[in-house]
Design a protein around this nucleic acid. Structure first.
Length: 825
DNA sequence: GGTCCCTAGATACC
DNA sequence: ACAGGTATCTAGGGACC
């Protein structure tokens, strides 16, 4: 039979010693379909240059006899073929070695210590990745599948699977069709304790299209009248059973939660174990499977479980203004909606009438999760289609893994054999290497400037890698390079205290070629965004920018298959060169350069017009090589640069700009740092706004006087004075005991959950005795006490505004002293 | 007990 | 372990007088 099919989830099983892919997806009518398919299983043995045909024949015979009998499985080399392939851009002769079971290929490869064999590759991709490459059945793309309907008794492993149709695949062909709206189910639990499994699960909310439900074993009859979505069950055990039941009934394509890898699913698992209940969420009736490692991941058979937090962290966080990745802040930023107000209390202390609020709160969390999912779905979809890996993995992978997946799935068009993952020793070596020199940052002259503009390079690192063909495979030894007529030469730079220069081939390598595609996609989305802006296009455009920019980071990442310090360091040498080149050009034109960092420069227009600047930009672009491109970032009415707190030099990476719509752009200042109290941040923000709007300090000084007075007279709300600092490691590992470590200790004493990653909140209080250290004055947010006036003036307010006023030759200390004396008298 | 210098640690920029 | 290097700044920590 034939059907149109879109794959959503991938798994595999062994049957009679062979590997079978088990793919869950939908047909065009929305029926759930399971495909069972197999593919050739093989890896590569790259042969030494000089091997002749006779030797190769002999070698093939020898390898063909390899048999394994391990882990109760019989595997053998089934056949071998000789192929002309490329490896790292070089033509090689390689043996394609077919084996019975993918999982045994590493072991077979270990047996190939023959002198004729140079390298063994392609055994470490994982069966799913290997299958997707072989059969080209890419996730979330439509295909026409022809195959035979499978009966329940075939293949042993699939008899219990809960799908409408099971097909053994005969052929796969792609069809032009893009649209796919998965059925999504969002869920969220509420429990009495935050420690996994240590309290009772009180309720679970579930939200899908036209479906809202809160199941609970708390709650009264009257709640049912008010809350139509509420369902009351007998006890916690029944709650868990009901949850599985509803998931089964809704039968979603995707189950999503927020931090559900780390909280909701492990909690459900733990409680289910306690009550000896099977949490059979999987389509095959299995329970969620949890991976070990630093980050737990929860996998459900047949239904991709997406923890939104994981994807948002890799794909969006660097472009977000949220200071924490909490559901509330993220929902605010993505949707402009918030969690419901509800003061968490232990269930034993909740009054009968408050439960209703709790249920609403719980439901709202799932609603927000559902809506955020809808919002980022285009990116998840694009990421998955581009990386060509199952959405379960793509949504959790770090950015370097995404880069690598993109490469691995596109090697075939270059006839390339995949490089292996680095060994443990190689990783150690790479981590131990010296850092290479990074980007250039211009030292600004402190001051207030008027009428300026900023240019920046679009995806600078990526466009350099593409333009100069930089990669592990295109790197040439100096001798080789000189033999070729044409080669790329990096600027000279210092590496390990030596003058260095690297050479690269001009023959386009697969790595830069692939990156070129990514850059072009990024440009396409950016253009679409400009033509018709919306938040989704913006996020998508940013996601591609992220991928393009991550290629450079990938080159220097110790875990990368295509790691190359030479290429990474050379990229940076070009980055420095072009940044300085642009500055020189601007100076030649008569512009005064006042700012520069990595891929951007800022300069004063002076007597020149905006049109002049645009013309200058055109001229620069006509001179730039390859795909390198400068763009106009914006024009600004004013900008301020300040001195470092130590020394008289201008501070780098700290400036504030105001554009012609009076919109502020603040970088590096305390205003944008979450480890400063709100009072200091908001005061600084206001001061920057006033001086940039007016071009002088008068209103700002008045404003500061007002705030200082408020601090002195204890008019400031404690909320404004809370300092938030993240705990980065277990308390015991800190060598210096700083205020936030003391605060964390206090929290621990109160049995509040503190893990690395917790945001510690505290304030500095007055102490009756003369304590010297700041950490001795730390109090937690809910601790009684009076704020320490001196600390907040001298350690928060003053540092935030001192340098700004210094630009206007105003000594803020005098203003403060003055105030103090006045209050004294 | 105060001053000086150094650095661990957190966070930001690109 | 899970992209890179550059930079600012605070508070603690130790040497010294």
């Amino acid at each position: 039979m034939k059907l149109e099919f879109i794959p959503v989830d991938y798994d595999y099983f062994d049957f009679e010693g062979r590997n079978y892919a088990k793919i869950i997806g939908r047909d065009k009518s929305g029926k759930r379909v399971c495909l069972v398919d197999s593919c050739d299983v093989f890896f590569w043995a790259i042969l030494k240059d000089k091997s002749n045909d006779k030797e190769i024949k002999k070698l093939q015979e020898k390898i063909g006899k390899i048999k394994l009998d391990t882990k109760g499985r019989k595997t053998e080399v089934e056949k071998t073929e000789v192929h002309e392939k490329n490896f790292l851009g070089q033509k090689v002769k390689a043996l394609k070695i077919f084996a019975t079971n993918y999982k045994d290929m590493h072991e077979i490869a270990d047996k190939l210590g023959m002198p004729e064999i140079e390298k063994r590759r392609g055994y470490d991709l994982g069966f799913i990745t290997h299958y997707i490459i072989e059969k080209k059945l890419n996730p979330l793309c439509w295909y026409e599948i022809s195959g035979d309907i499978l009966n329940a008794n075939e293949f042993g492993g699939i008899e219990n699977i809960d799908v409408d149709l099971c097909i053994k695949v005969n052929s796969i062909s792609p069809i032009k069709k893009e649209e796919f709206s998965p059925k999504v189910l969002a869920f969220d639990i509420e429990a009495d304790e935050l420690g996994i499994g240590s309290g009772e699960i009180l309720m679970i909310s579930l939200v899908s299209e036209n479906f809202r439900k809160v199941i609970t074993w708390k709650g009264q009859k009257k709640d049912l009248d008010n809350l139509p979505y509420l369902e009351i069950v007998k006890d916690e055990a029944e709650l868990l059973e009901k949850f599985s039941e509803i998931v089964k009934k809704i039968s979603p394509d995707i189950l999503t939660g927020y931090f559900s890898d780390g909280f909701d699913l492990p909690y459900l698992k733990s409680r289910a174990e306690k009550f000896k209940i099977k949490l059979n969420l999987g389509l095959d009736g299995s329970q969620p499977k949890f991976s070990r490692g630093i980050m737990t991941t929860a996998k459900i058979d047949g239904i991709p479980h997406i923890d939104l937090l994981r994807f948002i962290q890799t794909a969006y966080s660097q472009y977000m203004s949220s200071e924490t990745m909490s559901l509330n802040e993220v929902a605010n930023e993505f949707l402009g909606e918030s969690k419901k107000d509800f003061q968490h209390t232990h269930s034993s202390k909740i009054e009968i009438n408050s439960w209703e609020k709790y249920f609403e709160y719980n439901l709202q969390d799932s609603i927000l999760t559902y809506k955020i999912f809808e919002k980022i779905w285009p990116d998840l979809l694009e990421f998955t289609r581009i990386m060509q890996e199952p959405i379960f993995d793509v949504s959790r992978n770090g950015i370097s893994k995404n880069v690598e997946d993109y490469i691995i799935h596109n090697l075939e068009k270059f006839n390339e054999i995949p490089e292996k993952r680095p060994t443990y020793d190689e990783i150690g070596e790479r981590k131990g290497r010296e850092k290479y020199e990074g980007a250039f940052v211009f030292t600004p002259t402190p001051g207030l400037y008027e009428n300026l503009t900023i240019f920046d390079f679009t995806s600078m690192h990526a466009s350099i890698i593409v333009t100069y063909n930089l990669s592990k495979a295109t790197l040439l030894e100096e001798k080789e390079a000189k033999k070729e007529k044409d080669f790329v030469e990096s600027p000279e730079f210092e590496l390990n205290n030596e003058k260095k220069k690297f050479y690269f081939s001009k023959k386009p390598g697969f790595f830069p070629s692939l990156l070129k595609e990514v850059v072009e996609l990024r440009k396409k989305y950016k253009k679409e965004l400009k033509e018709k802006p919306d938040v989704i296009k913006k996020a998508r455009s940013n996601a591609f920018k992220l991928l393009a920019n991550a290629y450079y980071g990938y080159l220097g990442f110790f875990g990368a298959r295509y790691y190359s310090v030479e290429a990474a360091a050379s990229t940076l040498a070009f980055v420095r060169k072009f940044n300085k080149w642009t500055m020189e050009k601007a100076k030649e034109k008569g512009y005064e350069v006042i700012f520069g960092d990595t891929d951007s420069i800022g300069f004063l227009l002076g007597k020149k017009s905006k049109e002049d600047a645009k013309q200058f930009l055109k001229e620069l672009n006509s001179e730039l090589p390859g795909i390198m491109e400068l763009e106009l970032e914006d024009f600004y009415k004013r900008g301020i640069w300040v001195t470092k707190r130590t020394g008289e030099f201008g501070a780098k990476k700290k400036y504030a700009l105001i554009d012609y719509d009076d919109k502020l752009k603040i970088r590096g200042f305390e205003t944008v740092r979450r480890d400063w109290c709100t009072l200091a941040r908001e005061t600084q923000n206001k001061v920057l706004k006033l001086v940039l709007e007016d071009g002088n300090e008068k209103r700002a000084v008045e404003y500061i006087k007002k705030i200082v007075k408020e601090v002195n007279t204890r008019k400031v709300d404690l909320k404004e004075l809370i300092i938030r600092t993240q705990l980065k490691k277990p308390i015991s590992e800190y060598r210096t005991i700083s205020p936030h470590v003391i605060a964390a200790q206090k929290m621990q004493e109160k049995e509040m959950p503190i893990d690395p990653g917790t945001l510690i909140e505290y304030y500095i209080a007055e102490t009756p005795d003369k304590k010297k250290l700041i950490r001795e004055k730390v109090k937690l947010s809910d601790e009684e006490g009076e704020y320490n006036i001196e600390y907040y003036l001298k350690h928060q307010l003053l540092p935030a505004i001192e340098n700004i006023l210094q630009v206007f030759n105003v000594n803020i200390n005098e203003i403060l002293e003055n105030k103090k004396q006045k209050t004294l008298f």
